[in-house]
Design a protein around this nucleic acid. Structure first.
Lengths: 161, 161
DNA sequence: ATGAAATACTTTAGCGTTCAACTACCTTCT
DNA sequence: AGAAGGTAGTTGAACGCTAAAGTATTTCAT
């Protein structure tokens, strides 16, 4: 509304340069290969999706193997809705139980059962092996360090889990 | 059955060391953040999933904007089944058409329609912008180079697209 | 030439995810 | 105290993906 000059957002986007293009496409190929390998291994060996495994692991690391749903959602990098569905499935397997949160009438606590813990212990070696084969066996230690730093730059700080 | 000593695969897996653990978790957080941002942008602005966009772009880059299904599947990093479903949806939108392959009675050719090409042109700027915001604005050029090399190491060679 | 195996693609069913709507509870403001 | 708005979590519908099975065609071996 004022007479002051306004700077328009450019209609032409800043396209990726060649180096960025290469990096983006190789990242895409790599990340899909990783997900496919990890997901496939977990599906074959434990009949669960990757994210379900992450949920179990985050719970296994928590004090008393128990967390608020929203806290667990954050740590396992999933939406609340996704977590809610996932926990329902894991509950059916007897790996997790839900209980009301004493402090907060709205809250729910998810806790890992003994059976669930046993499942994590059983599944973990194959999973770690897949991660190693797919990633760390293929990288120098400098690249591993670089990967960490790149990840933190993109995710906005160190992983909080 | 022989008397020769056999070397057992170790029961104990080689766990990730601390550096690897950090790198893996920051990678996970970053890759999920990237997918979420890209997927969200495309879903909001064009009502298609990320992979559908990749399919359209690969087609747009091909000679005559036309490719064999299996070729397109490879270039867009998806399974044949997934591609088949995806192309069906994109056909319903009028962005792709299928025709029989003259050389090979089993084959099908997917080709981008004018409408489909127009959609790519329209969608691309927002997509590139999201990629830039999520990745390249946060990395130094050394990190971009490192990302490319790490990606290639994991994906097994430069991206073939 | 002919049968067997491989390739190309599709289809169906089951499952996980997203999005929006919904319930319940808590907090804050007046 | 009471209303308004925020937070926690769940649910149902729509949709995309996976795995397995199915069809059609081509290639290969004999």
């Amino acid at each position: 509304m004022s007479r002051s000059a306004t700077i328009q957002a450019p209609v032409q986007p800043r396209w990726l340069d060649e180096q960025e293009q290469l990096a983006w496409r190789s990242y895409l190929a790599a990340s899909r290969a990783i997900e496919e390998a990890i997901q496939g291994q977990l599906q074959r060996d434990a009949d669960i999706p990757h994210i379900y495994y992450e949920i179990l692991v985050r719970l296994s690391e928590a004090p008393d193997r128990m967390l608020r749903m929203s806290d667990l959602a954050e740590r396992s990098l999933s939406s609340r809705s996704r977590l809610s569905h996932a926990v329902s499935r894991l509950e059916e397997r007897g790996w997790i139980t839900r209980r009301a949160c004493p402090d907060d009438g709205r809250g729910m606590l998810a806790s890992l059962t003994e059976q669930g813990m046993a499942a994590v212990v059983k599944i973990a070696p194959g999973h770690v092996n897949a991660v190693r084969e797919q990633i760390f066996d293929r990288l120098t230690s400098e690249q591993v360090k670089a990967l960490q730093e790149i990840g933190e730059a993109i995710a906005g700080g160190p992983a909080n889990f």
